[in-house]
């Protein structure tokens, strides 16, 4: 597939760019093999690969609790959820590959620490209540973002997002169900649920990224339909849904400034962006552990890859011999 990635120095760039933007304006999807600006491709690879890495690293905080799940039902749910995250990573690596970057190169960037992934996964999961809270708040925030991305202009990315959203809806609901169950439970269970919400609320709000005024890529991403809503808009949707639900459950939102304005929007207090940039910069509570765990998993899986290759080579030889 000879992909065509346009540079501003190309003689026909402005003509083709106009056609490309008109297609996006008509709501058409851009598909692999179609002409696209090199900058569109670059931004998509950056976003999709970060997103893929987030799914892969996202298995770690929850995977740590599989063998400590309190019941068989919760354990089966959690196993299915963690397996979903692995699948989501693969959907996304595939979507990025349609833009001419290899999965191996992306994985190497992750394992070497060069690539970024969502900072939320650099926080620790301290109690079982964190598992429900991650489903409800972290996946809840992810769905808001992913529903927005599902409407985006690049076909393979939007298809991956539609599939992922359908599965994330299960993650979100099982988490909400678990937290609400604890909220109605014993004093100790209520405390656990509240403690988990206290620790995850603010990192969840940071998941949508910096405020619109501080988001340098937003203009071009919006013009080319990669992002269809701004960070602050998506954050507001998340708060409007989750803040009243938490309050309804008899739990507290850990934000003394939280209030509803006259339009019905729930307005949050100041976000600690210093913390956000610290975690992005590699100084979060779990950055080092997460990367070490990924590298260990990769190294310990080497014998499986080697066995598969040996078997495939044998098959190949047998076919040639026939």
């Amino acid at each position: 597939m000879p992909a065509k990635y346009g540079l501003p120095s190309d003689p026909d760039y402005s003509l083709r760019l106009a056609e490309f933007e008109a297609r996006i304006g008509r709501g058409e999807k851009i598909e692999p093999g179609d002409w696209m600006p090199e900058e569109y491709r670059r931004q998509l690879i950056r976003m999709i690969s970060q997103h893929a890495h987030s799914e892969v690293v996202g298995m770690l905080p929850e995977g740590a609790w599989i063998n400590r799940a309190p019941t068989l039902k919760r354990k089966m749910i959690l196993i299915a959820k963690v397996q979903d995250e692995a699948g989501h990573g693969q959907y996304l690596y595939h979507a990025a590959e349609t833009l001419g970057v290899s999965r191996e190169a992306m994985l190497e960037a992750l394992l070497s620490g060069k690539a970024k992934y969502s900072s939320i996964f650099n926080y620790p999961t301290l109690t079982w209540a964190d598992i429900g809270t991650i489903g409800w708040l972290v996946d809840g925030a992810a769905i808001k973002n992913q529903t927005m991305l599902a409407a985006g202009s690049y076909g393979p990315y939007s298809r991956a997002m539609v599939r992922i959203c359908a599965e994330e809806a299960f993650h979100h609901k099982q988490g909400k169900e678990m937290v609400l169950f604890y909220a109605r439970g014993s004093e100790k269970q209520r405390q656990m649920a509240q403690d988990a919400i206290n620790r995850w609320w603010w990192p969840a709000l940071m998941m949508m990224g910096p405020h619109d005024a501080d988001s340098p890529n937003s203009e071009v991403l919006t013009r080319w339909g990669i992002k269809t809503k701004s960070n602050d808009t998506v954050r507001q949707e998340f708060i409007n849904e989750h803040a009243p639900e938490i309050l309804d459950a008899g739990l507290q939102v850990p934000d003394p400034d939280l209030h509803q304005d006259d339009k019905g929007n729930w307005v949050h207090g100041p976000i600690n962006w210093d913390e956000f940039w610290q975690v992005v910069g590699g100084n979060g509570p779990m950055n080092k552990e997460r990367l070490e765990a990924r590298r260990k998993a990769h190294d310990e899986g080497a014998w499986v890859r080697s066995a598969l290759e040996t078997y495939a080579a044998k098959l190949q030889k047998a076919t040639v011999a026939v």
Partner: peptide
């Protein structure tokens, strides 16, 4: 248990709090 419908009736329904949402 892997389907979202399994959890549909738990808690206050999300639509109660929604101000509108676009879906693909």
């Amino acid at each position: 248990y892997k389907q979202q419908q399994y959890y549909a009736t738990i808690g206050s329904h999300v639509s109660k709090h929604k101000l509108g949402r676009e879906t693909d």
